[in-house]
Amino acid sequence: MKKCPECGNPSYDGAPVCGNCGFKFPKPKVAAPKEETIFKKEPIVRKTSSSESTIDILKKNRLLIGAILLITLIVILGIVLTGSNDKSSPIQVSGLNEYKQSDFSFKYPENWKNVSGNDPDHSGAKFFMDDNKTLIEFYNITSDSTSLKQINQQRIEYAQQNGSYVELVETVKLDGRNGSNIILENADGDYTRYVSMFSDGKLYVFKINGESINSITTSDINSMINSADIA
């Protein structure tokens, strides 16, 4: 119940006017309902102990990562050092000396020794000895033969008459010319190799004597033969 402020007459709460004097009661204020925000708050996701950052992971595993990097570096260094020290890779080539005659020249390793030799059939022969004690002889002569084939045939016949066995006879290319390579096993068990070139009536011969086929066919000897040049 409420009372009229003018006459004091009681009236019910919802009466718009006083029933005694006609006073108009003011409309009651209605409290506006609270509005809900249109923005929804997203739930805050908190990182659990298992949701670690990359930096945290790196920090925790720095020892393991460091070990992996160290092993990788060691492997790389090993490959580099192995490659640089590989005995089968670049071969260390010794210096070369050059032998020159009027119209003929060849190069030979500087560690070969110039030695005195005896060849009664070729007084002007030049002699060398390598580290394997293999004797390398060079001589040239004027020949009445018409071809290298004829010269080789005569050499083989003479060798067989002295008890030598023919191991190899082949044609080779030297200084752009046809040459021959003959290997004989001598009666005493040693080996002799003849490498010959024939040009304009002149015969150029490398005669190599050694204890085995390997000793007379080394890379140094073959390089020396292949360097032969007829001017």
Rank of each mutant, 00 (worst) to 15 (best):
Y139W: 02
I156K: 07
T134I: 00
A159M: 06
S143V: 02
G163D: 03
N140I: 02
V172E: 08
Q154P: 11
E137F: 09
I141S: 10
S143L: 02
F128E: 05
K133Y: 03
M129T: 11
V169W: 02
T134N: 01
D144N: 08
N132A: 10
K173N: 15
N152I: 08
S147M: 02
Q153A: 06
S143C: 04
F127W: 10
I151Q: 04
T171A: 13
L135N: 04
K173S: 15
F127M: 09
N132C: 01
S143G: 05
Q160Y: 09
L148D: 06
I136C: 02
G163H: 06
Q161R: 14
Y139C: 01
Q160C: 11
F138R: 05
T146A: 09
K149S: 15
D144P: 07
M129R: 08
Y158F: 15
Y158I: 14
S147E: 02
V169M: 06
Y158T: 15
N162Y: 11
E170H: 13
Q154G: 13
I151N: 03
N152Y: 06
L135I: 13
N132H: 05
L148K: 11
E170W: 08
K133P: 05
N152F: 06
V172I: 15
K149V: 10
R155C: 02
S164L: 03
Q150P: 10
T146P: 00
F127S: 07
Y165L: 12
V172T: 13
L168I: 08
S143Q: 04
V169I: 13
S147R: 01
V166T: 10
E170Y: 10
D144R: 07
I156T: 06
L135K: 05
T171Q: 14
E137G: 05
Y158N: 14
Y158A: 15
N162F: 13
T134H: 00
Y158K: 14
T134L: 00
D131Q: 07
I141C: 06
S143R: 03
I151K: 04
E157I: 13
I141Q: 10
K173W: 11
E157K: 13
S145A: 12
E170P: 12
L168Q: 12
Q161M: 14
Y158Q: 14
K133G: 02
N152D: 13
K133R: 03
Q154V: 14
N132S: 10
K133E: 03
Y165M: 09
N132Q: 11
I136N: 00
D130M: 00
S164F: 02
I156L: 12
N162W: 06
E167Y: 14
N140L: 04
E157D: 12
I136W: 00
S164K: 02
Y165K: 12
N152A: 12
K133C: 01
K173A: 15
V169E: 09
N152R: 11
L148Y: 09
V166E: 04
F138A: 12
N140T: 07
Y165G: 09
V169L: 05
I136S: 00
G163Q: 05
E157W: 08
N132I: 02
R155S: 03
E170M: 11
E170N: 15
F127C: 08
S164C: 03
I141N: 09
R155Q: 07
V172P: 09
K173I: 15
D131A: 08
D130R: 00
K149G: 15
Y139D: 03
L148V: 10
K149D: 15
D144E: 07
I156C: 09
